[in-house]
Simulated scan of single mutants.
Amino acid sequence: MPELPEVEIIRQSLDKKIRRKKVKKVIVRNRDLRMILPNDFKKQLENKKIRRVTRFSKYLIMNFNDNEFCLIHLGMSGTIHLVKNGSKNCFTNLSFYSSPLLPKKHNHIEIIFDRFKIIYNDPRRFGFFQIIKDYDDLKKRFSHLGPEPFDKKFNLKFFRKFIKNKDKKIKDLIIDQNFVSGIGNIYANEILFLTKINPFKKAKLLKKEDCNRIILKSRIVLQKAIKKGGSSIKDFMNTEGKKGGFQDSFNVYQRNGLKCKRKGCKGIILKKTISNRSTFFCNNCQN
């Protein structure tokens, strides 16, 4: 599943292509996604002008001129493809963890503009589209989620209050979307490496300086990942057919058995499982 940096790259690509564009037509080939599309979904989008594309956490948000919104969540296997009229451009994928080419199957939704269309493809159908009627409803939709790592609300006071008496391992805490929104398994591993904190440590045992380091390093890691275009673990590409580059900067993720990159450290990167997720850490500097 794409994490905050990858969704931000998709947002940038989409915004560049569909900002101020009018939806001419919508074709729904399959309503049976994670959230079943309403019967009037097509009517709710057609003839609307897109003001801009924004993002919260791992959600893309199409903002319309009439102050309604359409949320898009890619789930585990959802991808968005941009196809220009008459174009033979082989790179169509705006998304993550899939082929850069438009697959022949599982094209569930087509949103058609003047000279191009965007196609939502999702073999596992864990993604969804949702119409939100106004800004108040949009706020309510995200009220169960924690702040983003870049939000001022993600601060020491909030952190300390949240972890009080929690036996949860710190790795599980960082990927808990109720705590902080947008961080998934890849970046949690990288953040904890930079903080020198063992992923198995219980959250309630974190000291004040530990919390501050996690807040700071979360922002640093995610900003760097966005700047490098996200992480291309498989075939993630943006609208220009360019791969992300952050995977070249991984310190621990998928580096099990290799030497630690930290200067002066003689440790080895280990791979263990926490809550059914692969967890990578240095056996020396994160001990």
Rank of each mutant, 00 (worst) to 15 (best):
41 F>G: 02
258 L>F: 03
280 F>Y: 15
254 Q>V: 05
286 Q>K: 05
4 L>V: 02
107 N>T: 10
59 Y>F: 05
72 I>V: 06
100 P>V: 00
119 I>H: 04
146 G>W: 15
114 D>R: 12
258 L>W: 00
273 T>P: 04
98 S>Q: 10
126 F>L: 15
11 R>S: 05
55 R>Y: 01
110 E>N: 08
244 G>C: 01
39 N>E: 14
164 K>C: 04
283 N>M: 03
219 R>L: 09
124 R>C: 03
266 K>N: 15
58 K>L: 03
175 I>T: 13
252 V>W: 12
96 F>W: 10
273 T>W: 11
272 K>A: 10
70 C>M: 14
15 D>C: 08
254 Q>E: 13
286 Q>V: 05
152 K>V: 05
260 C>T: 06
186 I>P: 09
121 N>V: 12
54 T>R: 01
114 D>C: 05
128 F>L: 11
241 G>Q: 09
162 F>D: 07
187 Y>L: 05
70 C>L: 15
30 N>D: 15
153 K>P: 02
225 A>L: 09
174 I>H: 10
183 I>W: 06
247 Q>F: 11
214 I>R: 05
277 R>Q: 05
119 I>V: 15
161 K>T: 13
63 N>G: 00
119 I>D: 02
141 R>S: 08
95 S>L: 06
88 K>R: 14
66 D>M: 01
251 N>D: 11
70 C>Q: 03
124 R>H: 07
84 K>D: 15
3 E>D: 04
263 K>A: 09
67 N>W: 06
172 D>R: 13
259 K>I: 01
188 A>F: 11
272 K>L: 10
51 R>F: 08
34 R>T: 04
242 K>I: 05
103 P>N: 11
34 R>C: 06
21 K>N: 03
94 L>N: 04
87 S>N: 07
149 P>E: 03
152 K>A: 10
221 V>D: 10
126 F>H: 06
76 M>V: 10
38 P>R: 02
99 S>T: 12
237 M>C: 14
182 G>E: 00
42 K>N: 06
31 R>N: 06
142 F>Q: 01
65 N>M: 09
58 K>N: 07
111 I>W: 11
222 L>W: 03
231 S>W: 11
208 K>N: 13
136 D>F: 11
182 G>S: 02
131 I>E: 07
115 R>P: 00
